[in-house]
Design a protein around this nucleic acid. Sequence first.
DNA 1: CATGAATGAGTTTTCATTCAT
DNA 2: CATGAATGAAAACTCATTCAT
Lengths: 200, 200, 200, 200
Amino acid sequence: MKRKGPKYEKIIDAAVNVIAEHGYHQSQVSKIAKEAGVADGTIYLYFKNKEDLLVSVFNEKMGTFIEKTENELKSNDSAIQKLRILVEMHFKQLTADFELSIVTQLELRQTNRQLRAKIGEVLKRYLDLIDSILKDGMQEGVFVKNMDYRLARQMIFGTIDETATNWVMNDHRYDLPALAGPVHQMLVNGLSVRSVNLDD
Amino acid sequence: MKRKGPKYEKIIDAAVNVIAEHGYHQSQVSKIAKEAGVADGTIYLYFKNKEDLLVSVFNEKMGTFIEKTENELKSNDSAIQKLRILVEMHFKQLTADFELSIVTQLELRQTNRQLRAKIGEVLKRYLDLIDSILKDGMQEGVFVKNMDYRLARQMIFGTIDETATNWVMNDHRYDLPALAGPVHQMLVNGLSVRSVNLDD
Amino acid sequence: MKRKGPKYEKIIDAAVNVIAEHGYHQSQVSKIAKEAGVADGTIYLYFKNKEDLLVSVFNEKMGTFIEKTENELKSNDSAIQKLRILVEMHFKQLTADFELSIVTQLELRQTNRQLRAKIGEVLKRYLDLIDSILKDGMQEGVFVKNMDYRLARQMIFGTIDETATNWVMNDHRYDLPALAGPVHQMLVNGLSVRSVNLDD
Amino acid sequence: MKRKGPKYEKIIDAAVNVIAEHGYHQSQVSKIAKEAGVADGTIYLYFKNKEDLLVSVFNEKMGTFIEKTENELKSNDSAIQKLRILVEMHFKQLTADFELSIVTQLELRQTNRQLRAKIGEVLKRYLDLIDSILKDGMQEGVFVKNMDYRLARQMIFGTIDETATNWVMNDHRYDLPALAGPVHQMLVNGLSVRSVNLDD
DNA sequence: CATGAATGAGTTTTCATTCAT
DNA sequence: CATGAATGAAAACTCATTCAT
C-alpha cells in the first residue's frame, strides 16, 4: 500500500471533484479512477478499499484545514481573539474551496456509522483546539468558571457547522466570512461572565 | 395509497425499530415488513416506495414532536422562558424514545440530497417556531435589536442539535434534559442585550 | 364459474379497451376490473385466471368475426367470389373496431406459446373456411389441381394478416377495405390455372 | 460497452439457445449468463441492458441472414429467378438452424411494442430487398405495372413468414426448403401479367 | 354474488474488488 | 507499478390470485 506519490494526490483530488459534482452515492470507484486518469485497480494500490479512500480524503483535506487553523492560533492572543480567528479561518477556508465545502458539509455525512466514526476521530483534533481556547478563556477569567466544557464546545462547533451547512445548502449565495463577526459575538456572549444570569 | 389504518402505524413503527437496530443502509423493505408483521407487498399499499416510507416516518414522528412543542409554547411566557421550554421539550422528547433519537439524529442523515430536502421541509416548521421566539424576544427588548435572524436561529438549532447528536453517539449515557438549563443559559447569553460588546 | 351475465360482457369489453389503450403488458387484472366497474375478485367469478380471460376475449371477438364471415359465405357464389368476400369481410370488420384490431393484430401476439396455442385453436375455424373455398375452387376447376392446401391457405392467411398488421402499425392511416380488391386479385392469380407456369 | 470479443459472441449464442429451449419469458439474464459461461455482470459489459441484448441477438443473426441473401441476389438473374432465390434462401437458412428459427419465428414476437419497433428496423433491410426485386420485375415487364408495391411486398413476406411460422409450430416436422418451389410459383402467379384478370 | 385488502414469489442491474497480464 | 476485464452478491418492487367479510 503506497501511501504517497503523485497518483495518491491525484486520486484524492479526483474524489473531491467527483463527489462534489455527482454526490456521494453517485461516486463510484470507477468514476473517481477515470477522473484521476488511472485504472480502477490502481486505486487499490494506494487505498485499502473505498472506505479507506473516503476517510483519507477527509483526513488529508481536514488535516490541512486544521493545521492552518492551529498555526493561526499559535499567537499570544486572548481567548476571545482566538475564538474569532477560529471562526474566521473556518469560514474562509470553506469559502476558498467550494467543492471541498460541498463534500465535507453535505456529502460525507451520508455515510454509515462506521465511516463517520473514523471521520469523528479526525475531527477530534479540531475539537481539542476549541477546548484549549475555552480553557484559556476560563484562565483569563473571561469565560464562565466551571462551565461544562463539552456543552460549550458543542455550542461553538454546532453553531459554526450549522452556519456553514446552511451556506452550502443555499448554494454559497452569500458571503460566509462576513458572518464571522456576528457569529463570534453570539458565541462570546454565550460564554462570557458579563452576561445575563438566569438565576438572578 | 391508503394513508391510514392500523397497518400504516405498524409499518411506521417497524421502520423506526429496524433502522435504529440495523442502521439506515441495512434496513431493507423486507426486514421492515417482517418486523411489522405484514407481507413485503403490503408496504406498497401504504407507501409509494421506500423513500416515501422513510419520509413518512420522519413526517409522522417529527410532526408529533413539533406539535407537542408548539402546544407548550402557546403560553404567555416571555421569550426567554419560551426558549427554555423549547430546549427542554427537545431534549425530553428525544429522551422519551431512544430508538427515535437514533433514527432522527444519526440514521436519517445518511440519506441522499433528495430525501434530505423533503426532510428539510418538515423541519421548516420547527425553525419557524424558533424564529417566532426570536421575534418575541426582540419586541420584549431582551434580545439584541436588528440581530441576524438566520444566524441566531442557526446558533440555537446548531447547538441543540449538536448536543443531542453527541448524546446519541455517546449511547445515551448521560442525562440529556439535565443539560437544558446550561444550554439555555448559553443561548440566552449569546442573544441578550446585557452582554459583552466586542466593539467596546 | 358463471359463464354469462352482464358482467361477463363488461369484463370482456373492458379487457379490449384496456389492452388497446395500454398494451398487453400494461393490462393488469386490476386495471381491467376498474375499467369494467367491478372488483378485482369478481373477475375470478367469471374466469378461471387471467389467461382464461384473454383466451375468452379472443374467443368471443374472433367467434363473432368468424360467424359473420361464415354467414356471408353461405351464398352460392363461385370460389373466386367467395375469396373476395372473405378478404373484404376481414378488412371491413377490422375497420369497424379499431381497438379490437390493435388487440388481435398486435397485442395478443405478445403472449406465450401456451396462450397462443389456445388462440390457434380458435383460428382453426377460420382456416377451415379458407380451406373450403380452396376446395370449391379446385372442384370448379379455377384453382390449380392437386395444389398444396396448406401452402395455399398460408399464402391467403399470411397475406391478409400481414396486410392487416401493417395497417394497424401505420395507425390505421389508410383505407384498408379499399385494398381488398388488389389483394384478392393477387391471391387469385397466385392460385389460378390460367397463370404463369414456371416449368414452361 | 464492448461490442466485440469472444464473449460477445458467446453471450449472443447462449441467448439463442436459452430462448429456444425455455421460451422468451423464461429466459432470465442469469440463465443466459450461465449458459454462456460468464458471470451475470459480464453481460452488462457487453450490452446496455436485457433489451439491448435481445435486439443484438436479432441484429446479429438477422443481419447475417440478410447479408447472405443479399449476396445471392447480386447475380444478373431475372426478377422471377431472384424471387426464387429469396424464398429458397429464407427457407434454407431457417432450416440450417432450428434453434434460431424458433427464436425468430416464435419467441422474439412476444416482445413489447418498443422492442418490436427496433426489430422492425432491422427487418426494413429485408423488405427493401423484396422491393428491389419487385422493381426489377416491373422493369422487365413480367410483374404487373403500377402494382401496389406495399401490397405485393406484404403478400411475399406474409406468405413466406406464415409458411415458416407454421413449419416451426409443427416442430420442423417437414421439409421446408421443398416448399420453396410451390410458394415461389404461387407468388409469381400472384404478381404476373400473364394471369387472371378479374375485370374480364 | 361481490368485494378489495393482503399476499409473497421472482428478476434485472449495479459496483466494489480481484488478479492475470 | 499499472491495468481493466471479470466477478457475483444483493434488494426494491410488481401483480395474479385468494378469501374473510
